[in-house]
Design a protein around this nucleic acid. Structure first.
Lengths: 336, 336
DNA sequence: CTGAAAGCGCTAACAA
DNA sequence: TTGTTAGCGCTTTCAG
């Protein structure tokens, strides 16, 4: 295998018989190039299979067209619909904007060399708060996703989790349910916490007092959803409806219910949160709250990019609204 | 907000009253620096919160400490345990080796500017064959993951899927099962195909002829696993055991079985493939084939890095062996 | 042990 | 429209 010398802009310039600058111009689509010369340069580029050295471009331009994505490393996050949609959304946006997406999984302690990216997106502020603060201090553009950050002047794109939970619970009430149980997500997570808040708000609004134990603290895992559901079965007035803080948990709850020989939605109604496509294909399609995860991820990249390019100086604070998707897993209770 | 000027190596040099070269030395841990000076420089670095500009370093060094990860963009891949483990493993290895992980989701047509990374890892060769060939042509170090590539001289780290499938099927035979059905994965995938091969091989080895329809072509989705299982229920001699090409599918199959009022493993045995932790927490823990996904991902990064640094010139061709994990979902058939 | 100087490959004024 | 000339921030000989 011959050691192929990297071809540089100079080689192209030679072959096309023009100056380096001209080559640079055609690379960057500066329109002031004579069509004939342009063609010659392009021929040379193709012939030599030339590809600009990004490091050199960045150095010369003084800016950096890479965005960092930092995800907290806690176990399980990766196996969540949430994380995956974020990665997809951000990846897609980067591909479109021709940005590099530099991916960091971090426990929150690595200093996170931020000089190799133009800006940073934090998939969550939990576990990475220090790094967010540091990034802010350094004046590096950054965005936090899925958290309404009040105590830090940082840009974010978030989802109104509380509103979503209210929708879900209100819907169950509207069907006539009164005995509604909830499996919460991880309450250290803002989303998890706010969904619980929304649930409580709806309950209160309807002037109901829930029996004890109608709220089970979960952590988004299927395992805890299973435990929660088993637990609900043992309650004196058993709930007629379950609101789970994620589709995954809702799905597991449905499995448990069916393993007990009960039917959904006849015996028990279930609503989830996410709109995970997996919840479409079970034996009963899940009614759920759709949150615009992909969209949120995409738009965070766009905002970040605008900040990096200096087009936007103020902080961006966006809160997206989720939406109720009615499918087959809910029905009025038998004995209201 | 003041526009904080980036601090450069020069600023550090000034403050420490040394030359740029010396600063560079301490950055790069060149041992020939006087401890006193070293301390002064480090103080300055800390004080100014200096971080080297990676683009400049790369340009000067002439090499690139970033690795590209390219994943095919077909729908669903992201929602697979497989993809996630890869990302985790590669991410982890990069973090350890202090490499940037540049993430590309691609449909296989983007030219994939390979000049901004030192080497490339292809998460699969399916859909990205052209790009692999191109990368090879350009002399850029690269590795293919999870594919034993015969018709291209490229490095790979793969898993012996066939052997895994043989293990699974042999195990079922060893319990006394004869009527074993299989739900395959996507057969366009090498893994999917080879697992089917392994299944067939084991069957043949045991001198059995399977009834028609005992092999259902799936695609790794839960949906198809559901269809497959329903389908198996209608077969004349119904199977007593099911081998699913992924844990996800196995889990779904188990759900369907239980929805039919049957018990696992009493009525039907199930074995999966993956060792997805999700399969630990159902009502019945799944017996499965563990494949070293994380390890495979990690080691691909290490090999690639060695190639990038020129420490390794030959192709690397590694095939890892999976392993049977016996849990609770299998048992001898009732009427053998 | 330390520093001066020459690039790495490219962009961006400024001239021509 | 094209070319000349400085750098971008850092590493790396090569002297001192």
């Amino acid at each position: 295998m011959r050691k192929k010398k990297k071809v540089s802009i100079e080689d192209v310039a030679h072959r096309a018989n023009v100056s380096i600058t001209t080559v640079s111009r055609v690379i960057n689509n500066v329109s002031t190039v004579d069509p004939k010369i342009q063609a010659r340069v392009e021929e040379a580029i193709a012939y030599l299979k030339y590809q600009p050295n990004i490091s050199a471009q960045r150095l010369a331009r003084g800016l950096n067209n890479a965005v960092g994505l930092v995800m907290p490393g806690y176990p399980g996050i990766f196996h969540s619909f949430y994380a995956i949609e974020l990665i997809r959304g951000i990846g897609h946006a980067c591909e479109t904007l021709r940005l590099d997406m530099v991916f960091h999984i971090t426990n929150g302690f690595n200093p996170l060399n931020s000089n190799n990216v133009g800006g940073i997106i934090f998939a969550d502020i939990i576990e990475n708060r220090k790094q967010v603060e540091h990034t802010l201090e350094m004046g590096i553009p950054c965005m936090v996703i899925n958290n309404i950050v009040q105590d830090l002047d940082v840009s974010y794109v978030a989802i109104d989790n509380k509103a979503g939970a209210v929708m879900a619970t209100d819907y169950l009430f509207s069907l006539g349910h009164q005995k509604i149980a909830m499996i919460t997500g991880n309450l250290k997570t803002q989303g998890g916490f706010q969904r619980l808040e929304g649930f409580k708000e709806s309950i209160q609004k309807h002037n109901i007092t829930l029996p004890d134990g109608y709220t089970y603290e979960g952590d988004y895992s299927r395992r805890c959803a299973r435990q929660a559901t088993e637990y609900f079965f043992n309650l004196k007035p058993a709930p007629t409806a379950i609101f789970a803080s994620s589709d995954d948990m809702a799905l597991e709850a449905m499995s448990v219910v069916m393993e007990h020989g009960l039917k959904i939605p006849e015996d028990i109604s279930v609503v989830g949160f996410d709109d995970n496509p997996a919840s479409l294909y079970g034996s009963v399609a899940l009614t759920t709250i759709r949150q615009p995860l992909f969209h949120m991820a995409e738009s965070s990249v766009k905002h970040l990019n605008a900040m990096v390019l200096g087009k936007k100086k103020e902080r961006v604070k966006v809160v997206l609204t989720p939406e109720l998707v009615v499918r087959e897993s809910c029905r009025p209770p038998k004995n209201p």
